[in-house]
Amino acid sequence: MNKPFPPLFVSHGSPMIALEPGGTGAFLQRLGRTLDNGWGRPAAVLAVSAHTTAREAVLLAADRHEAVYDFGGFPPALYQLRYDAPGDPALARAIGQSSGVPVYDHGGLDHGIWTALRYIYPDADVPVIPLTLTPHATPAQLMALGERLQAVAQQGVLVVATGSITHNLRLMMQPDASGRRLPEDAPERTESAAFRRWFAERSAALDWDALANYRSLAPSAALMPPTDEHLLPWYVAAGAGGRTHAPRRLHDAVTFGSLGMDAYAFGPQAAALADALADPLGAPVQEAEVTERSQRGSRGSAPT
């Protein structure tokens, strides 16, 4: 490791991203390459997702974490993909001791975690330590939780929070004017664009008070995330980065007209990561290459 890792928030969108990477899958693949080149491999990924919830924050310290198929109604091929990563019980206990977060010997990677990590680290060779989300906590409480985890970057741990910057499945499933289901590349709704723009602007302005009170201040806040859980992981990663440096939006995208796929970095290294990703000399990752690499990683991570 060359320097501490910037905590990250990435939008995972539909579970189908695991089969159809699109632009966000290509971004996540390049993100992994950029981290490898500039920061090295992390000792572990501390992952918090909208889909692993509990009444309190706990760290999961299994020796091995298998992919969990916590969804239904998708093509059979999606359930054949594997992403089974090692855990690190000793490191989980060390993080728990330093942060005051309880540790349990349970395992499993929900789809918000493994569909993102299969592009960032396709060989499933980086240990993962899941952190449960408390979905009824306030943004301020989750930022405070993240602040208790600031030291993990100094231990070579990469915090990856996953959710969706905007998430309204009802809007996504609405038919278009001809009665057909919205395509993935449908034009973005004005409400989605306004919400995502507000979030990026308040982040750049270091307006933590506004961000913590997005429900009452952000445009179309009741529509774009009608429930909080997919946005709440953002605040854990933000807290882990600290309040001194402005969050940087690394990826600006939307699918199905209203499912925001934005990604953010936090903390002192956020700007350096944003600059590295924007470097025109960095080779862009093509979608076909992303698919091939992620399939190779899935085959390689089957349990033994």
Rank of each mutant, 00 (worst) to 15 (best):
P6A: 02
L8A: 06
H12C: 03
H12M: 03
G13N: 04
S14T: 10
M16F: 04
P21M: 04
P21W: 09
G22E: 12
L28N: 10
L31E: 09
R33E: 14
D36W: 08
S49W: 07
T52E: 11
A57D: 08
V58A: 14
Y79E: 05
Q80L: 07
Q80N: 14
P89S: 04
L91F: 12
A94H: 15
G96Q: 08
V101M: 12
W114E: 00
L117W: 08
Y119P: 02
Y119K: 01
P122C: 01
A124H: 05
V128W: 13
P130A: 04
H136S: 08
G146T: 02
Q150L: 01
L158R: 12
V159K: 09
T162D: 02
H167G: 03
R170H: 14
M173V: 06
M173L: 14
Q174H: 08
D176K: 04
A177R: 09
G179W: 07
G179V: 01
R181D: 09
E184M: 03
D185V: 00
P187C: 01
S192K: 02
S192G: 11
A193M: 05
F195Q: 06
W198S: 02
D207P: 01
N213E: 13
Y214A: 11
S216Y: 09
P219D: 13
P219N: 11
A221V: 06
A222K: 13
W234Q: 01
W234F: 15
H245E: 00
L259E: 05
G260L: 02
D262E: 09
Y264N: 05
G267K: 02
G267I: 00
P268T: 00
Q269Y: 07
L273P: 09
A274T: 04
A276V: 06
L281W: 14
A283D: 14
V285Q: 15
R296M: 11
